[in-house]
Write a protein that binds this DNA or RNA. Structure first.
Lengths: 139, 139
DNA sequence: ATAGATGCAAACTATTTGCATTCAA
DNA sequence: TTGAATGCAAATAGTTTGCATCTAT
């Protein structure tokens, strides 16, 4: 059996395969720099001048809801601050949005001054996503 | 010699030690859930009813600039999307804001279903921050 | 034919900015 | 005394919503 096409995957998810959605999805799949809604809008608008930014937002929501795309940051809509300056990592409760500090031993993950394909890595942060004790109780 | 007080650290950074700043900094240091500017505003306002939300924003900017506090997410101000559904990690250029995919071997970091103090961990994401090749060239 | 999608505009939320007043040094 | 900080209000950026129209099925 053949791989399901994007159109098949849209339909399986109950989404109509409109030209706008296909263009937005294809542009996102092609762009490897994890574009913002606006960057995607600008990328697609050339070939589809009637496209509106609102449709890009709605499409990304629909695709995310269908599990076809992901948002890179899962930290929510507002800035979050930390007075702890020691290197550390974060435990994020996806239910109540609380963020706790945690320390992950990263020595085994990378040498101190790792370079990845010309990329100079200065810091490594680990985020653990899940459900905190309080929110688990409330299930 | 004694530890520098918060007031000392403010002054070293060229920041006046105003009651608002002290209250905001102390609330942030006390709250372990990494509050948003608005949460901090609500926490401090009780003891200082004249405080304005604008001052909280300005104070956080000033403290961050002085290296006294950090913002938890370094991914910038807008949403970023990804069509790559395979588990993977991210390389973030702090100069041009480009985000690239990378795969970090996390087997050594945690067992598959790690629990941290009652926290049910569902996913682990690693973010490497640094400077990409293009931006390094431009230095 | 019709439920769902689009495009436009208005609304909303988070954040930033401008400026007159106040205050820490 | 004085430059920096505050508080208020207006401005901006990003995102969401409402709704009339259109279109994929």
């Amino acid at each position: 059996m053949a791989e399901p096409t994007i159109i098949d995957r849209f339909r399986e998810a109950g989404l109509k395969a409109t030209p706008q959605r296909l263009a937005i999805y294809r542009a996102l799949a092609r762009m490897k720099d994890h574009p913002s809604p606006d960057a995607l809008f600008r990328a697609v608008r050339g070939a589809m001048p009637s496209l509106s930014l609102g449709t890009v937002y709605k499409t990304l929501d629909a695709l995310e809801g269908a599990g076809l795309v992901e948002e890179v940051s899962r930290l929510g809509e507002t800035k979050r601050y930390d007075a702890n300056l020691a290197p550390h990592d974060h435990l994020v409760c996806t239910v109540c949005r609380r963020i706790a500090d945690i320390h992950v031993d990263k020595r085994s993950v990378k040498p101190a001054d790792l370079e990845v394909e010309g990329f100079e890595v200065l810091e490594m942060h680990v985020q653990l996503f899940g459900v905190c004790r309080d929110c688990r109780k409330k299930r």
